[in-house]
């Protein structure tokens, strides 16, 4: 997550001080990725060092106010224009766990998958409940709400779709195992793991 670019994007709307930036960031993302104030001020210091923001003095109540520079505007425009690089996927503990479960002896892979599926469904139920509550709070649909509310709903949707994708992947893994088990049975292959032959284990790794 780019805190640097997020703060620059918020500063495009006008000068802000640190606590304001943190509050607005959390409001628009539903506090899904909480920021601590230390992170905000460290980032602002770096942005100032790089001439992307400047200090505009004091707001009269002791808060140092920052504004975005022309270089900063160019930087944030470039950020919005460029795709988020997915070439280096973040470490996925579940994928690692399943890859190991498939290849390590004495692990019941079906049970590992089901335990995760149940937990993921619970997570999905929770997100769905919160989405319904969020829509119900204002009694309006996502197209007529304020932009911050809409941003929060879209973040929730992103979490819902990501969790759904995880469950679909678990279903896929289970289906794949069942299919391999059938193939192995017909071919008379004795595998170390249910549904696996040695070459498949290599593919999973």
């Amino acid at each position: 997550m780019s805190i640097r670019h997020s703060l620059l994007a918020l500063l495009q709307e006008g000068p802000r001080y640190g606590y304001q930036l943190r509050g607005e960031f959390e409001e628009r993302t539903g506090a899904t990725w909480p920021l601590n104030i230390g992170q905000v001020y460290t980032t602002l210091d770096r942005l100032e060092r790089d001439a992307l923001v400047q200090k505009d003095g004091d707001d009269g109540e002791g808060h140092v106010v920052y504004s975005v520079t022309d270089t900063g505007r160019a930087e944030v425009a470039e950020w919005f224009a460029a795709p988020v690089a997915q070439t280096n996927p973040p470490r996925n503990e579940l994928a690692i766990k399943l890859a190991l479960a498939l290849t390590v002896e004495c692990v019941n892979v079906t049970a590992v998958i089901q335990t995760q599926r149940t937990a993921s469904i619970r997570q999905l139920q929770d997100y769905t409940r919160q989405r319904r509550a969020a829509v119900g709070t204002t009694g309006a649909n996502s197209f007529t709400r304020g932009s911050n509310d809409t941003a929060w709903l879209l973040v929730l949707d992103s979490l819902i779709f990501a969790t759904e994708a995880e469950i679909r992947w678990l279903d896929h893994c289970e289906g794949w195992m069942a299919q391999r088990a059938g193939v192995n049975q017909r071919a008379g292959v004795t595998s170390r793991k249910p549904g696996l032959i040695a070459s498949d284990a290599a593919v999973i790794k």
Partner: peptide, 28 residues
């Protein structure tokens, strides 16, 4: 949510009502 496999119920997931998760998002 009831999970079936090979004609058997293998697991169930009841919704948790954990207000801690993402609660801040509901505040506005």
């Amino acid at each position: 949510v009831v999970f079936l496999r090979d004609g058997r119920i293998v697991d169930e997931a009841a919704a948790q009502h954990d207000p801690a998760v993402l609660l801040t998002g509901l505040a506005h």
